[in-house]
């Protein structure tokens, strides 16, 4: 199991997609960061939501669907090790990747850009955990229904843009039609960003939105488990 985790970690570092998930949000942060005021509370939550969204919707499903497509899960089921171990290891590693991406953003924004960092840690951790769980659940569902890695990649990208739009990551929500903005608030990515904004405003994230994220995480994961095929 340890060896499996080490090898998978090495494979992840050789995957160009992992670099993108780290660098794209950082790039956005730095480009737009030059024009923010000190103590800004909008940009950093946006970049964090983008980072977690990229890992959950793009990297996670592509990796898992590719493993199934290439028969790696099936090959593993002929050994004494269960293929489920590989999925668990992958989930953990992708979680670590999301965490790394966010830590990188926080470090850069906090030091170089002088953006506002929330004073309380616990609400931020809660928002991160619930948001990541919801995004990963969606990623798992994509992995479950996509016939192969390329399709998973395509579905991930196709879902990412509307979700990012609805979440107000492409256009400020106050410039969107009210109804669209309201709907967007209850999408996984939208609820996640909203929670982060609350945290950055040094308020506790709304229990309703955390509940929405938890519901997404549970319901969508169950659907993913139901539709998942090993081969």
């Amino acid at each position: 199991m340890t060896k499996l985790a080490i090898v998978e970690l090495k494979l992840l570092t050789r995957e160009p997609g992992a670099m993108f998930a780290l660098l794209i949000p950082l790039f956005i942060l730095v480009v737009f960061g030059s024009s923010i005021e000190r103590g800004d509370t909008v940009l950093l939550p946006m970049a964090l939501a983008i980072a977690v969204g990229l890992v959950g919707l793009y990297l996670l499903p592509t990796t898992m669907a590719t493993y199934r497509e290439r028969g790696i899960l099936r090959r593993l089921s002929t050994t004494p090790v269960r293929p489920g171990n590989l999925l668990v290891v992958q989930l953990l590693l992708q979680f670590v990747l999301a965490l790394t991406a966010c830590a990188l953003l926080l470090a850069v924004a906090g030091t170089v850009l002088g953006a506002h960092l929330p004073t309380r840690v616990l609400p931020g951790v809660l928002a991160f955990l619930f948001g990541t769980a919801a995004m990963f659940a969606v990623g798992l569902l994509i992995a479950a229904v996509a016939p192969n890695g390329r399709a998973a990649n395509g579905i991930g990208v196709l879902l990412y843009f509307p979700m990012a739009y609805l979440a107000g990551l492409m256009q400020p929500t106050d410039q969107m039609p009210t109804i669209v903005a309201r709907i967007g608030e209850y999408t996984p990515l939208g609820a996640f960003r909203q929670c982060l904004r609350d945290v950055w405003a040094d308020a506790a994230p709304s229990p309703l939105l955390l509940g929405v994220l938890a519901a997404y995480a549970v319901v969508v994961s169950i659907a993913a488990a139901k539709y998942f095929r090993w081969e």
């Binding site: 290439r70 090959r75 002929t78």
Partner: peptide
């Protein structure tokens, strides 16, 4: 038991 399966691959980068 050792198995070689038809149509299986390994990760490209391993």
């Amino acid at each position: 038991v050792g198995v070689q399966l038809q149509h299986t691959q390994l990760p490209e980068n391993i």
